[in-house]
Nucleic acid binder design. Sequence first.
DNA 1: CAGTATTGCTTGACTTGTCAATTATTGAAT
DNA 2: ATTCAATAATTGACAAGTCAAGCAATACTG
Lengths: 162, 162
Amino acid sequence: MPSDMSSNLAHEPVADRKLTEFLTYRVVRLHHALNAQGMDVLNDVAGVTLSQWRVIAMVGSGTATTSRDIARVSVIDPAIISRTVHGLEEAGLLTTSRPADDRRVLQMALTGRGREIYARTLPHMQARQNALLGALSAAEQEMIFGIFDRLEEAAESRDFLK
Amino acid sequence: MPSDMSSNLAHEPVADRKLTEFLTYRVVRLHHALNAQGMDVLNDVAGVTLSQWRVIAMVGSGTATTSRDIARVSVIDPAIISRTVHGLEEAGLLTTSRPADDRRVLQMALTGRGREIYARTLPHMQARQNALLGALSAAEQEMIFGIFDRLEEAAESRDFLK
DNA sequence: CAGTATTGCTTGACTTGTCAATTATTGAAT
DNA sequence: ATTCAATAATTGACAAGTCAAGCAATACTG
């Protein structure tokens, strides 16, 4: 537990908006907490890492079945995808092939074991999403994705630097 | 640019809620975009890294002036703080001392150059915060910190695993 | 169709972040 | 006071993430 936040006894000058109330800072904290939660769940349920799960989920759901598409749809670096995919291949959860119509791309498919892990893990991850959304009020649930849309867009800008 | 998101031509089964609409996934993306934005700003304005700025900001504002307090108030790992602080010391932006009443803790203070960088950089970072918040509607601005509070709390739970 | 550019993936070097073990100091307990 | 526990910082080993260079396949251009 942090010490009492309401008593500010600092003698130093303090920023207009407290640093700990910066939006960016809150995103870092939330990201950190969600990462830890995700790692715990995946470790308990499937024995895979976060990166591994992201690839498994993308392929298992059909959202993206090539490295290229995973990189596009997520923010995972191609280098990480490459290494993770080959790790999953060695672990026997995934197979790869080069399609005849474009042999640059790496086409992926889950193996039986991969599909088993996907099927077993997905419900837990969805339960988690529901638990997270369930912590919000109806009004908040309605607004949250729009908020993310606008913040992400604003994060692309550098205009505020005059 | 991602391809058209509204046409889902997947023949594979798809999760109830699309993976790319998972809350956690949006947080990862937002975190990623904000990190890139922050690094750009700091590189342009101050020539420091994100970790370095976090320490400078904590000390410069008086929010936290020891490694212990920075670790408490932020989510920065003590190992990173230690390395960053000594890097800042070598760069001449910060000095450290061991207070007589507890020689375990590392008390920090900005040097003249450190204060200069803090003073010059803070306004840009605040402008950035205002730009981010300004991308939200009034209603969204009112709700967003509460949303973060509740999501962070929910991220601590593992109860949804039955 | 030759030459050039682009795309998809891979690799290696590097930075950043995480974790466990270690040391030094302080606090608590009898 | 002596022992035992807790705290603060540091270190080293490791994992994850970033970045730039490179290779092979495809697309584009005149």
